[in-house]
């Protein structure tokens, strides 16, 4: 196992705040504290070479978990092992095994040309000249760093900076790569480049990747396994396919119809013998589109189509599968089935 996290918890203690001016004065004398559990008893293990998507809504505790795995924060309870090292006890030793990209921050030297940052990192991680040359050649190919290698970091665009940051995190060939929202704010082309780069790195060096993101595209393209957390608790851990099977049973058929008639439609469901909770219909008057959302295990698409077509004139049909985004939304709202 590359990463073993067992029963890890982190709570933050902050002084209690009271509302209003009176409250502010009260706050000066109060010693009451509020304890907030950001991460609550999470366990999982990750094998070498896996790419795992770690997802959850804002403030769910994703970044806090990552920070405990990198040794920045110390857990309140529980512990974790990364490549056999406890990051909390041996931060520096652990740091040699990991690479980190925080999408919203940079580890590069802001005022200096990018090349300088790489030279410093070479020294810090004690990368020998041969490895450095080989690694740079690879990074240049997948991330195209050379076009802005001599420019000061502060003049780089967000996409360039993110590529540079990813390169910087990979220079010492880490066993584990943590990516905290690596594609935030990037345009589609750059996103695609970054994803391709991550895939190549994972394939070539067998780097274990843990990725937090709000971008469903990242997950669909990269991750074979996902972990979902909500309010500090793990609520799902398994393959992407399984999640889709569990939640992705919903289909939507949109039909452009003439002579729409609500009464006829109601009769139609009765003749089909379908219960009311198994479907949802919606009619868009302006565009004349009737959309029916249903459970694909209970009703079949042809049944609906023939039934509707027998009553109304259908001009166009579109069938949509549930997007992962909808599944995640659904889980955030109502929890796991």
């Amino acid at each position: 196992m590359m990463i073993e996290v067992s029963h890890i918890s982190k709570s933050f203690v902050s002084p209690k705040k009271y509302p209003g001016l009176k409250g502010a004065i009260k706050g000066l004398f109060s010693t009451e504290k509020i304890e907030k559990k950001a991460v609550d008893d999470i366990s999982f293990s990750i094998k070498e070479g896996e790419i795992v998507g770690y997802i959850g809504s804002n403030g769910a505790g994703k970044s806090t978990t990552i920070k405990m795995m990198t040794g920045i924060l110390s857990p309140t309870e529980g512990n974790c092992l990364v490549n056999g090292v406890d990051p909390n006890k041996k931060r520096k030793e652990n740091a040699k095994n990991i690479g980190v990209v925080f999408g919203q921050r940079t580890q590069l030297w802001w005022d200096l040309p990018l090349s300088e940052s790489f030279t410093i990192l070479k020294e810090i991680y004690d990368v020998c000249d041969e490895d450095y040359a080989e690694r740079m050649e690879f990074l240049n190919r997948v991330l195209e760093l050379q076009e802005f290698f001599d420019r000061p970091v502060r003049t780089l665009s967000l996409g360039q900076r993110m590529r540079a940051d990813l390169g910087a995190a990979l220079l010492h060939n880490p066993r584990v790569l943590y990516l905290d929202e690596p594609t935030i704010g990037l345009d589609l082309v750059v996103k695609e480049n970054i994803r391709e780069a991550i895939k190549e790195i994972n394939a070539k060096y067998k780097t274990t990747v843990i990725l937090t993101t709000h971008d469903i595209g990242d997950i669909e393209e990269l991750c074979s396994r996902i972990i979902i957390i909500d309010q500090g608790k793990k609520i799902y851990d398994g393959s992407l396919q399984k999640l889709k099977d569990l939640y992705g049973a919903k289909r939507t058929v949109s039909m452009e119809v003439r002579n729409y008639n609500q009464k006829k439609l109601a009769n139609l469901w009765e003749t089909l013998g379908v219960k009311e909770e198994d479907y949802e219909t919606e009619y868009d008057k302006e565009q004349r589109i009737l959309s029916v959302a249903f459970d694909k295990n209970k009703i079949h698409v042809p049944e609906i189509l023939t039934a509707v077509m027998s009553q109304m004139e259908v001009k166009d049909v579109q069938i949509e599968e549930t997007q992962l985004e909808d599944i995640v939304k659904q889980i955030y709202h109502s929890g796991v089935k």
């Binding site: 990198t70 040794g71 520096k92 740091a95 580890q107 810090i124």
Partner: peptide, 14 residues
């Protein structure tokens, strides 16, 4: 203030 201490702590340095 900028939250950059974290960026220092991920490196194997003091």
């Amino acid at each position: 203030v900028k939250g950059l201490v974290a960026m220092n702590l991920i490196k194997p340095i003091d």
